[in-house]
Structures are given as structure tokens and as C-alpha cells.
């Protein structure tokens, strides 16, 4: 399963080039892989194990082994204890998925032009702009999200500005809506899209573009045939960095969405806290991971099929 993950973020690896380095390939990988296996894979296996256990009375898990947590995902117990098909959790997953997709699309739509603009500047301006775009993210995410609450609330700055300018007469409720959640998510994850895209478009050879123009390509054609294909690895990397955390986010839904609807993140959180059902929480997390992995495999297949060999 993990093998399928990699191609999604990485197009076909470069051809082997350095014999001296090649001998050391494995050695170079060992430290990072060892750290991740020990502190990530092993704990994850424990979590996977949890999903097949029974919930302890006060949180935690106990025997016996059971697949109840997974059954519950699709079927609910009626009052007479019979199983009925239930779409509650599928609905929660679908909502989070749609929101994460939209977040990613907006991040690309904002991040790509921005990264391109920065890459087109002079060296000094480039560094300064790159720094400027990351600076806001040195403050805590939670604090920034609260600042959006201050801006968006009924008596907030945005409504104040709108009313002062005479555009509106009564406050508009921006907060506690899906749009507010989306805004918060795009805001939270934007730099994770901009940085990887910048890292690749910055390397685009200007001669390619000049050549394109010499062949009578307009701006749009240059973008479609040169910039976009070359930016794609960056967009793929950025998508991974944005989509997955957006899928599991619960800060923005809670603060900006008013906690009216459950998202996957809040569902899992709830199971590990007040609902005290760790196996179900672990199962929801495992299903989430499985879906992400399937998505990555599909992405990898498509790219694999489309790439010229």
C-alpha cells in the first residue's frame, strides 16, 4: 500500500546517474526510514489494532476482537437491534471530501499565479516576496483563525467597513457558514501550495518560453504548453500537502463553521474524547487513510498512463 503512495507525489524517478552515489542509496535512506517506521508505522499499527477491539467503558480498548467498528460505519442498529443501512457517516465523509477538494482547487487557483508572479521577479524581489508570503504563517494557526472570526463576525471589521462605506445597511452574517470554513481552510493551507509550485516554476528555463513565443504562442498557449506541464509536479506535491490535512481539519469547521455539522476530523476527535469509543475512532481513521491511499493510487495510475515513456 505504501508503495503505491510514492509515485503519486513523484513522477518517474530520474535515471540512475551516479555510480558512486548509487552504492550509497540505501545507506542514505536508512535514517529517515528508520525514524518513520519506529515513530510512525509502529504507532499506526497499534491504532489499526485498536479498530478491531472493543471500546473500554471509560475510553481505551479491551478484548474481545470484533469488526463492529467497521460494521457500524455502514449499518446502524435499530431499536430492536436489527441492522439497517445508514448513510450518516458516508454523508460526513462526503461533506469533508467536497470541502477538501474545493480547498485544493482554490489553493491551486491562487497559488499557481502567485508562484508564477514571484518566479518572474528579479532575484531580490523574489526572495522578499517568498519571505512575505510565508511570514503570516509564522504565527499560530489558531490565532490566525480567531482573527478571521474577528473580521467576519456580525460586528466585525468586514461588516463595519461595508456599513461605513454605505454598501450595506445591516450586518451580513459571514461567519458560521460553509463559505467561512472554506475561506479558513484555503487561508490555512495556501503556503503549502505556493512553496512547492514556486520550487518548480522558478526553475523553468526562460529560453523555453522565448522559444514558444518565437513559434507564435500567445500567453495562453505558453501557459498551457510550457508553464502548466512543468508546474504539475509542484501542484501534485502541493495537492498532497493541502488535500490531506484539509480532509482531516477540525479547527476551521469548529471556529468558522460554528460546529453545526460534523467533519471527519471532528468525528474522529469526538470518538477519542467525549464519545469514548476509541475503536470506532480508529476505524474511521483507518477508512480515511484507505480512501486517501486509493485516491493516490488512482492519481499515480493516471499519471503513469499519461506520461510519455
Amino acid at each position: 500500500m505504501s508503495a503505491a503512495l510514492a509515485p503519486a507525489i513523484t513522477p518517474a524517478p530520474a535515471a540512475p546517474t551516479a555510480p558512486g552515489l548509487a552504492a550509497r542509496t540505501v545507506t542514505l535512506l536508512v535514517p529517515a526510514v528508520a525514524v518513520i517506521v519506529l515513530f510512525m508505522v509502529v504507532p499506526m499499527l497499534i491504532a489499526a489494532g485498536y479498530s478491531f477491539l472493543t471500546a473500554g467503558a471509560y475510553g481505551g480498548v479491551r478484548l474481545p476482537l470484533t469488526a463492529d467498528a467497521y460494521v457500524r460505519f455502514l449499518f446502524d442498529r435499530d431499536l430492536d437491534d436489527s441492522l439497517i443501512f445508514d448513510t450518516t457517516y458516508i454523508g460526513i465523509f462526503a461533506r469533508s471530501f467536497v470541502l477538501a477538494v474545493l480547498t485544493t482547487l482554490f489553493c491551486v487557483a491562487i497559488g499557481l499565479p502567485l508562484a508564477w508572479f514571484i518566479a518572474c521577479r528579479e532575484r531580490r524581489a523574489r526572495d522578499a516576496l517568498l519571505l512575505a508570503i510565508t511570514i503570516p504563517f509564522w504565527t499560530n494557526l489558531l490565532v490566525r483563525t480567531y482573527c478571521w472570526v474577528l473580521i467576519l463576525r456580525d460586528q466585525g471589521l468586514l461588516n463595519g467597513a461595508l456599513q461605513a462605506s454605505g454598501l450595506t445597511s445591516a450586518p451580513i452574517t459571514f461567519l458560521y457558514s460553509n463559505e467561512a470554513i472554506l475561506l479558513g481552510l484555503v487561508y490555512s493551507f495556501l503556503p503549502f501550495m505556493v512553496l512547492p509550485i514556486y520550487a518548480v516554476v522558478e526553475k523553468i528555463d526562460p529560453r523555453l518560453i522565448e522559444a514558444g513565443h518565437d513559434l507564435y504562442a500567445g500567453r495562453l498557449a505558453v501557459f498551457r504548453h510550457i508553464v502548466w506541464p512543468l508546474a504539475r509536479p509542484g501542484i501534485a506535491a502541493g495537492t498532497l500537502l493541502v488535500f490531506v490535512p484539509a480532509l482531516g481539519a477540525f479547527l476551521a469547521p469548529d471556529l468558522l463553521g460554528g460546529g453545526k455539522k460534523l467533519m471527519i476530523g471532528s468525528l474522529i476527535q469526538l470518538q477519542f474524547t467525549s464519545s469514548r469509543n476509541w475503536p470506532f475512532g480508529a476505524a474511521a481513521a483507518m477508512i480515511l487513510m484507505a480512501l486517501v491511499l486509493v485516491g493516490l493510487v488512482v492519481m499515480a495510475r493516471r499519471r503513469g498512463a499519461g506520461a510519455p515513456r
Binding site: 467503558a57 450518516t88 457517516y89 455539522k261 460534523l262 469526538l270 467525549s274 464519545s275 469514548r276
Partner: peptide
């Protein structure tokens, strides 16, 4: 609250916010 009561609360809450 007992385990059973906690489960019922969880069900109500999930239905409320689905």
C-alpha cells in the same frame, strides 16, 4: 454516565450534526 448512556449521547449528537 454509563457506557450505554454515552453511546446513546454519541448517537444523538451524530444525528444532530450529520
Amino acid at each position: 454516565c454509563s457506557e450505554e448512556a454515552t453511546q446513546l449521547m454519541d448517537r444523538v449528537w451524530t444525528r444532530l450534526k450529520r
